[in-house]
Design a protein around this nucleic acid. Structure first.
Lengths: 166, 166
DNA sequence: TACGACACGTGAGAC
DNA sequence: TGTCTCACGTGTCGT
């Protein structure tokens, strides 16, 4: 049976908590134990699960629109996002060959700027005012690229990436 | 490679284990089954697992670069691919700005043809300077609740919830 | 109360 | 032989 739970299982604002690495005393058992049948794993399996969760958790910041915090939803959003990027890529290529053949310099550029709202049109309210406030993060955060924020039902995910470590 | 196991698997005979078949036997008893403790799931859980696997399986075709067939590797490849697209997007934006300013017409176009282009994402802002530390959000963000943060490799996700909607 | 999402331990198969 | 990956059933937690 499933051994006592690892820890308090505090939900991380929703689901998918990061690691849950420690778990129980796991090999609190002394040294080595008789391997018995094929059950030597236990720790390796736990490690594998953790790796997969970390990957899944790392997938979330790179996808700008996160509908829910589910594991399945994260993957779904990633799929949608990639397909969306492919669509844009196609349009850009079309614009480029048009630009190359014709003249239309400014038009293409203007069109690119206009495409941003078209993309993010879903049913999303503007939250520009929210992140308009500049926070004074005590400087020293150079090359910082903030945001990709999405507002779900009641949650906002703000992810910021920087070159160095914070 | 061994992703497609016996996944369909509606019959319960396959999963019958010598050690603990009692719960399954209870469930196989069709009609309405005895609720028992908290073990009502079994089928819902199996359904959830299948959904998550389907998503993960659907993620694979949209990512052009597949190193391995692992679950973890699929997600990893997706992450790398998205980041790669982001990088290309950044270059394209830079090229377009340069193209708009005047010089390098043909050169930029040629350069764009080389790479698989993508386009701007929806929300992405740079913080050039940080001043005006005071938050100027006129909207009342009252009852703002918690900020759970997580630090991964190089990313930090801060999610905060509030009662109202902004 | 029941439902949904999750981590866990474990047997099985592939290399 | 051992190691890796997987699906499964189950207990737990939060809504």
């Amino acid at each position: 049976m499933p051994l006592p739970r690892a820890e308090g299982h505090i939900s991380y604002g929703g689901a998918l908590r990061p690691g849950e690495g420690d778990a129980i005393a796991q090999y609190v058992q002394q040294g080595k134990r008789i391997p018995r049948r094929g059950e030597v794993d236990l720790s390796a399996e736990r490690n594998r699960r953790k790796k997969l969760n970390d990957r899944l958790f790392a997938l979330r910041p790179v996808v700008p629109k996160i509908s829910k915090m589910d594991k399945a939803s994260i993957i779904k959003d990633a799929i949608d996002y990639i397909q969306e990027l492919h669509e844009q890529e196609r349009r850009i290529q079309a614009d480029l060959i048009q630009l190359e053949s014709g003249k239309l310099k400014k038009n293409a550029v203007f069109d690119l700027d206009q495409e941003i709202p078209t993309l993010s049109r879903l049913k999303k309210k503007r939250i520009d005012h929210s992140y308009d406030s500049r926070r004074s993060t005590t400087s020293s955060i150079e090359d910082l690229e903030l945001s990709v924020s999405y507002i779900g039902e009641k949650t906002v995910v703000v992810s910021l990436t920087c070159s160095k470590r914070t």
